[in-house]
C-alpha cells in the first residue's frame, strides 16, 4: 500500500461493513465487540471473536489495518468483559485498541504491552497536557481528538505533544465533551459511558399529535416537527428546547459534520488520520462516504483542489453540513 495523504479510518459496525469499507478504499477500519465494551452497543451490531478474526484476516490480506474500540467505562465490580475484550483483540491480531477508561488503559498496559494503544474520543483529552499524561503514563501512541477543537487548537496540540492524532472528518457534530455527557442517562437511565448506548432505540418513540410529529426519549419530548420536516435521530443534544419562551436547537442543529473541504488544512496542522463516524450506519453509507473520501484524498495527493463537499450532502444528518468546531465561529 502506498503512503496516503492522510490515513482514512473508517467505521465497521458489521463484518459486511468492514469489507465494504476496505473495498471502498479505507486504510484502516475500527470496530467493536458485541457487548457493552464499546460506545456503539446497539442491538444487532458489532463483532464476535470469530468475526473479528475473519475481519482482521480480510484487512491484513489487503494491507489494511483493524482497530478495536474498547471505549466505555466499566462499572465497579464488573470489569471482566473489558479485560477479556483487550485480551481477545490481541489474540485476533488487531493492529491497535482504542481505550477510554483509565482502569482499562492500566490493564492493557500491564497485560498486553505490545498491543498498540489509542486514546478514544470518549477520554475527552482536549489539550496537550491531558494527551501528555496518557502518553507518559500508558504509552498511548495516538489520540482521537474531541470534536470541540478548532484547527488552530489541533495544530497547537500536535506541535506540543508530537503525538499521532486522529480527527473526526465526517459524521455527527457532538457538541458536548464526549465520555462525560450524562444527558442520555438523565433521560433514559442507560448510560453511554458504561453501557455504550446514547439515546437507546428502546427509549425512542415517535408520536403523532394534532398533525405534528413528536420525538420522545424516555418521557422527555425532544422535538416537535411538521410531518415532512427532516427529523434528526432523537439524541438529547439534537433536541429542540425552550429558553426565554422561544424554542430552538439549543445545543446543535440537525446537521452533519463534513470536513472534506478542510483536508489540506488538517494535513498542514499535522494530523495523522481522519476518522469517519458511523458504526451504527449501514454498509451503503460506509461505502459511499469512504469512497468519496478516498477520491478526495487521492485527488489531493495528486495536487488537485477539487471540492467534494456536495457529494455527501444526502447522507449527512438532516441533509445539511457544517465544519463544526474546526472553524471558531461555531462556538
Amino acid at each position: 500500500m502506498t503512503v496516503s495523504y492522510l490515513e482514512l479510518v473508517c467505521p465497521a459496525g458489521t463484518p459486511a461493513a468492514l469489507r465494504a469499507a476496505i473495498d471502498a478504499g479505507a486504510d484502516t477500519v475500527y470496530c467493536g465487540y458485541r457487548n457493552c465494551t464499546n460506545a456503539r452497543n446497539y442491538p444487532g451490531l458489532n463483532f464476535d471473536q470469530d468475526e473479528l478474526i475473519e475481519g482482521v484476516e480480510y484487512a491484513h490480506a489487503r494491507g489494511r489495518k483493524v482497530l478495536v474500540a474498547i471505549n466505555t467505562f466499566p462499572r465497579a465490580g464488573d470489569e471482566k468483559p473489558w479485560h477479556k475484550a483487550v485480551d481477545e483483540a490481541a489474540e485476533a491480531k488487531a493492529d491497535a485498541i482504542i481505550l477510554a477508561d483509565i482502569g482499562v488503559l492500566d490493564y492493557a498496559t500491564r497485560h498486553q504491552p505490545h498491543l498498540r494503544r489509542h486514546l478514544s474520543v470518549q477520554a475527552s483529552a482536549a489539550n496537550a497536557m491531558s494527551v501528555s499524561f496518557y502518553r507518559d503514563r500508558f504509552g498511548v501512541k495516538r489520540v482521537v481528538l474531541p470534536r470541540v477543537l478548532s484547527i488552530e487548537d489541533v495544530a497547537a496540540l500536535i506541535e506540543k505533544t508530537g503525538m499521532e492524532t486522529e480527527v473526526f472528518a465526517f459524521g455527527s457534530v457532538g457538541p458536548m465533551s464526549e465520555g462525560r455527557c450524562f444527558l442520555s442517562s438523565y433521560m433514559t437511565g442507560l448510560s453511554p459511558t458504561s453501557e455504550g448506548v446514547c439515546a437507546p432505540a428502546s427509549h425512542v418513540a415517535y408520536k403523532e399529535e394534532g398533525g405534528c410529529m413528536k420525538s420522545c426519549l424516555g418521557c422527555v419530548t425532544l422535538n416537535q416537527f411538521e410531518k415532512d420536516e427532516p427529523a434528526p435521530y432523537p439524541t438529547p443534544c439534537k433536541g429542540r428546547y425552550i429558553t426565554h419562551g422561544e424554542a430552538r436547537y439549543l445545543f446543535e442543529e440537525p446537521i452533519g459534520l463534513n470536513a472534506i473541504d478542510l483536508l489540506p488544512q488538517l494535513k498542514a496542522a499535522g494530523v495523522t488520520a481522519l476518522k469517519i463516524e458511523g458504526r451504527q450506519r449501514s454498509r451503503a453509507y460506509v461505502a459511499e462516504v469512504v469512497g468519496t473520501f478516498r477520491k478526495a484524498l487521492d485527488a489531493l495527493a495528486m495536487g488537485s483542489s477539487k471540492s467534494f463537499a456536495n457529494d455527501l450532502k444526502n447522507v449527512a444528518e438532516g441533509g445539511r453540513e457544517t465544519f463544526g468546531a474546526y472553524k471558531k465561529g461555531w462556538r
Binding site: 459496525g13 458489521t14 463484518p15 459486511a16 461493513a17 469489507r19 446497539y42 442491538p43 444487532g44 451490531l45 437507546p200 432505540a201 428502546s202 427509549h203 425512542v204 418513540a205 415517535y206 451504527q280 449501514s282 454498509r283
Partner: peptide, 16 residues
Amino acid sequence: DTAVVVALRNTLDREE
C-alpha cells in the same frame, strides 16, 4: 418499539 426495528436493520446489514 424502535429498538426492534434498529436491531432488525443492523442484523440485515451484517449480510450481503
